[in-house]
Write a protein that binds this DNA or RNA. Structure first.
Lengths: 368, 368
DNA sequence: CTCACGCGTTAATGCGTATTAGGTAATGCG
DNA sequence: CGCATTACCTAATACGCATTAACGCGTGAG
């Protein structure tokens, strides 16, 4: 216990510590200026003018002077304790926030989160997961640690509903990054995949395509179902067939989306393909590879599009049609929502629009 | 200033707040468990056994149970004020931690930082606003917020010495990621650029090169000077001329490192070139371009090396000779050092070795 | 049967700041 | 000149937790 030394260094009652250790506090500034601690607080927090609590120029000067001389800086812990809020926003991801495998990194979101947090005057607490007891020990209360912040942002699709619901029920401000339907009462900020996907289909339809197929993976996260939903919406809106044949769903795109299959589709009248965007980009990769292997030229013979962005390692390839998810904006929006929740203001979960990207992978269908 | 409102939500003396808002405190846990607040503190801080202040199994059980039920978590500010630990490590960068321009991202460091922090049982507090607010506006107290954490990690070369020194003087645990010589007493963890650079030169010398030129930018950060230092060391160790002619320093490599100049060097007997690694990779880019433009084959006619890694957008190019900086390890090492500082253990700043990378950009010099 | 003592728990403080309810001297008003 | 204002400040207290002095209660020794 001798380690805690830095703390208990001032036994006496005198405002001036013996060993001239530790930084000055308001009491010392007060003594030097010949006023009370309360006055120092008033002057330094600039709260006098604001609250119609007048302080004479003379006093203000003395206090500022004294503070300057002593090099006073407020203790953030004390300040936050007194304010009953600590200006901390939690960020909790159910995998490492900084994965070594950069594929499903939260980086783009964090860009916006950090920026907006700074604007709102918050610092961020990144919960490392182990502190919360690890995913395994995830019994009741695994997420309790996040309560040390004023509110918390959750990332990732695997957020356990009951735990989140518990936090919400206790009145703890929570925002989930990504749309949720399952957890009642959890606020969220999501990308509008439905509209964005519909727009892509519309663009293809307007270019003249009559048969379009969606290649998607075998996942039921809202991010996936929303895309399919929007895709089918788009077909119907264009008066195109939106039956089951329009969607090809597979757990293993790499082996299931073959050149033969693509060729068959093409001969059957399909002139455009759309792939879902996922962490791995498997659907898009498979589709591209298959089209290539089938010897079909793009966008000459078939048009392609991604419902999102291509995986980062393909940035140097020709830009495909699709849409861009404004990740930084999503992050910022989430922080804004959380901030409002904390302030007790009325709030509403938000959908953020994606921006259509024409790209060069699509054109009019080859005239038969 | 109506925002502060959220704070004073509990006027009464009752430990249980009216609006079921706000996090539970020890007093509420105590009430539920039927004991006093002090007992709760003793049990939860596990300080009973340690201080020979025994608590009955029965009581301990009740308290833990109550805490669990309420989802209690200690208020970090209050803990700090009471001179205890938070299990919070600060991370402070002097530019945005998550820059939009990914070039000088701290991401690779953070990977290690996060992981090691998790191992050591810490959560991370990302102090924002270093970018916003402006260094001036934030002023003297800008770094002060970090005192909320148990210790703080600083990233970036622009850390203001006096502020850091002050923290150190006050006994606050601080670790800087990157070697420092200027600030007395600040612990740091850095990469051993000197040895790594020397090794590169040694490798070239052993391959038979007699004249080697270093292209570097106009910057005096330790990261740059260390590399030059190691470069010259390597030349001397190999018995090669290490005069001023061996180093070409320019503020604008792009226009100064021309094909003509490279050709001149080559005709003058220079068979190998080494470029410094920087944020932008300007030196390396310029060197490559110039050699290319001069029509010199690499590694046939000239050998090339980077003192570090090539910029991320060139990952698909042939791997150049150089060395890899173990960034994640540096991050982890920094956390370990900080953790030791906090624990009051004796510590020492550390240099971490880089790993040599043979690459394919170097070979024996063309026999004249 | 009283006293010292170990044990388990609580009451009382302190940490540094913000805030609020006064208090005091100077001023205005009639 | 007495009282109500005003203008400035200070005393007191809360914030949530850690810590320490003190208290009540058996119990075994004397």
């Amino acid at each position: 216990m001798a380690k805690e030394g830095a703390g208990r260094a001032r036994p006496g009652r005198s405002p001036v510590p013996a060993g001239r250790r530790s930084r000055p506090r308001q009491a010392e500034v007060a003594q030097l200026a010949g006023v009370s601690q309360a006055t120092v607080s008033l002057v330094l927090s600039g709260r006098d003018e604001a609250t119609a609590r007048p302080i004479s120029e003379e006093t203000r000067r003395k206090v500022l002077q004294a503070a300057q001389t002593l090099g006073y800086v407020p203790d953030p812990a004390a300040r936050r304790l007194a304010a009953a809020r600590n200006n901390l926003l939690g960020v909790f991801s159910f995998t490492a926030t900084f994965p070594t495998d950069v594929r499903h990194s939260y980086y783009p979101f964090l860009v916006g989160v950090e920026q907006e947090a700074a604007v709102q005057g918050y610092d961020l607490v990144l919960f490392t997961g182990s502190s919360a007891g690890g995913a395994d020990a995830a019994g009741a209360g695994a997420l309790n640690r996040v309560r040390l912040a004023d509110g918390c942002l959750f990332l990732g699709r695997h957020a356990p509903s009951p735990e989140l619901a518990r936090l919400v029920r206790d009145g703890f401000p929570v925002v989930h990054l990504g749309r949720r339907e399952d957890t009642e009462g959890v606020a969220w900020v999501g990308a509008d995949y439905i509209s964005a996907s519909r727009d892509v289909v519309t663009a293809l339809a307007e270019a003249g395509h009559r048969r379009i197929v969606l290649v998607r993976e075998d996942d039921d996260a809202p991010a996936s179902t929303d895309r399919e939903h929007g895709f089918l919406d788009g077909l119907r809106a264009a008066g195109l067939p939106a039956g089951p044949a329009a969607v090809f769903r597979t757990a293993d795109p790499h082996t299931e989306v073959t050149a033969a299959r693509v060729r068959a589709w093409h001969e059957d009248g399909v002139t455009a393909f759309v792939a879902e965007e996922t962490d791995t980009g498997a659907a898009w990769r498979a589709l591209r590879a298959a089209v290539d292997a089938a010897g079909l030229r793009c966008p000459g013979e078939v048009s392609l599009a991604v419902l999102g962005s291509p995986p980062p390692d393909l940035v140097n390839e020709p830009v495909p049609m699709g849409f861009d998810i404004p990740r930084a904006r999503l992050g910022a929006e989430a922080v804004r929502l959380l901030s409002a929740l904390i302030a007790g203001e009325p709030t509403e979960s938000t959908l953020v629009a994606c921006t259509f990207r024409a790209g060069v992978s699509s054109g009019p269908p080859a005239t038969a």
